[in-house]
Design a protein around this nucleic acid. Sequence first.
DNA 1: GTGACATACCTATGTATCTTAGGTATAAAT
DNA 2: ATTTATACCTAAGATACATAGGTATGTCAC
Lengths: 111, 111
Amino acid sequence: MSQPSLYRGNLTAIVLQLLETDGRMYGYEITQKVKDKTNGSLQIKEGALYPILHKLEAENFLTVEVEKVGKRIRKYYKITEAGEKERISQLAALKEYMATMEQLFNPKLSY
Amino acid sequence: MSQPSLYRGNLTAIVLQLLETDGRMYGYEITQKVKDKTNGSLQIKEGALYPILHKLEAENFLTVEVEKVGKRIRKYYKITEAGEKERISQLAALKEYMATMEQLFNPKLSY
DNA sequence: GTGACATACCTATGTATCTTAGGTATAAAT
DNA sequence: ATTTATACCTAAGATACATAGGTATGTCAC
């Protein structure tokens, strides 16, 4: 049984945001950074992350640079201009969503 | 193509919250009230709502009373004590989720 | 030196939670 | 008379994950 997370639907936005604020990163690094930043609340699974990165790259929202560290490979991803536009768009949707949730769960009384 | 919403995963919590704050309601009424409260941002589809109501009832989180209005039927749902516990539990998860998202997208600088 | 764990990449399958798209029927509005 | 709103329902399809595997390199404790 898969245990769905509340972050469902937000992972792509989170990746775009992270690459914008923190600069180029590689996949594994992203999983760790997110875990750190959220004090372990959000652990992006590799099974979710890698397909997201590949999709964003295919959409030209990210570019990749492959680097060798010893005998291992790292694929560094960087956000493009198109990706930045996409990020802003998704951020706007997220803001509205958050505001609406606030309204539903913590309504400001409207007299 | 189905257009996924950011509210995915929150609909059950929203229904529980609504039945707690606004008292007993019937399905169609819930869809309208949510649309109203969110200024149209969130339109819970009947195809999503009715299965949720049936599931919550099966879990004893809701009770039903059927009423006749003219020749039509209304099924009024009310939250149970177990449902209230579930609501509180889901609310706590939601709060943490929202706080984490805030942290990711609007980080308070940590010196 | 070997066993465990971390790093670093990947994909295939299963599944929860929806959206879409239908259906039935009554009531109100134009 | 036709359209729209009310009020219930379910089946099929889509999405975005989680789960669960796989490969390989590097590090650390014992």
